[in-house]
């Protein structure tokens, strides 16, 4: 018998598993939509009419980042930690699924769900509000950024879940990271300039900050220097990769 390979049925299993865990659709779909609509409807009352599309688009771009955070960071860590706690990955391995196959299936399912959530979010926003119509370059940059944030979240979530191997502490830690990233990254309406100096420094290391603050310029077609943003992706990506590698080393050679 050959080792099992990736199949559509395995991806479907992971996708349904995401849908069945209510907090992922809630935090990944309902919450960003509600928060976005609420903030656009209430927080922009002082903005002059002429600047409203720009302000709304800025908020939309900021809050859309909650989707990878909720679906991948919260979703993957909580589902995978529960599975580790119940030794489901080991069971799958004993059924002939190499670890990378089950992880790729999860990754694909999570990114499929994230994509659907993003499409729904964008469709609702463009139907509900007058927004800036982006150029194709702005769309590509935004989509690539969201996927890169998703990959960073995946490494971080997987590292935390693999380190604790229990749902409780994993969920607690990722929830703290989730809210911290939302607050510092400008997704809760706070600008990085309003933060204390120490938090401003942390904010400058987060790609979320640049998307929340600067991506409106890309959507407006204003020339933008990507260097600090790319640097922040590298920094957060490296931290997530280090967390992942450390968790693997920590768990290496431990009992099954």
């Amino acid at each position: 018998m050959k080792p099992k390979t990736l199949s559509l049925k395995l991806i479907r299993l992971e996708l349904v598993s995401i849908l069945a865990n209510w907090f992922i659709p809630f935090f990944g779909v309902v919450f960003p939509l509600l928060l976005g609509i609420l903030l656009v409807s209430t927080a922009l009352s002082d903005v002059p009419e002429a600047f409203l599309p720009e302000a709304r688009t800025g908020l939309m771009l900021s809050i859309i980042q909650i989707i990878p955070l909720a679906v991948i960071l919260l979703g993957h860590s909580s589902i995978y930690s529960q599975e580790l706690e119940n030794k489901i990955p080991l069971r799958m391995r004993l059924f002939g699924f190499p670890e990378h196959v089950t992880l790729i299936a999860k990754l694909i399912a999570e990114f499929m769900f994230m994509t659907l959530a993003i499409i729904l979010y964008v469709v609702v926003f463009f139907n509900a509000f007058e927004l800036i119509i982006p150029s194709s370059k702005a769309i590509v940059v935004t989509v690539v950024t969201l996927y890169l944030e998703g990959i960073i979240c995946f490494m971080l979530a997987h590292g935390v879940a693999n380190f604790f191997r229990k749902f409780g502490p994993t969920y607690a830690v990722t929830m703290v990271i989730y809210f911290a990233l939302m607050m510092i990254g400008g997704m809760m309406g706070l600008q990085s300039s309003q933060l204390p100096a120490s938090l401003r420094f942390i904010a400058s290391m987060l790609p979320f900050t640049y998307v929340s603050r600067d991506f409106i310029d890309i959507w407006k077609g204003i020339p933008y220097s990507y260097a600090p943003f790319i640097q922040s992706l590298i920094v957060l990506g490296s931290i997530s990769a280090i967390v992942l590698v450390l968790s693997i080393i920590f768990r290496k050679n431990r009992a099954v």
Binding site: V16, N21, N86, R91
Partner: peptide, 11 residues
């Protein structure tokens, strides 16, 4: 032996 508990068994 544990399996995903939120999905139908047939799946």
């Amino acid at each position: 032996n544990e399996y995903p508990s939120t999905v139908p068994i047939w799946m």
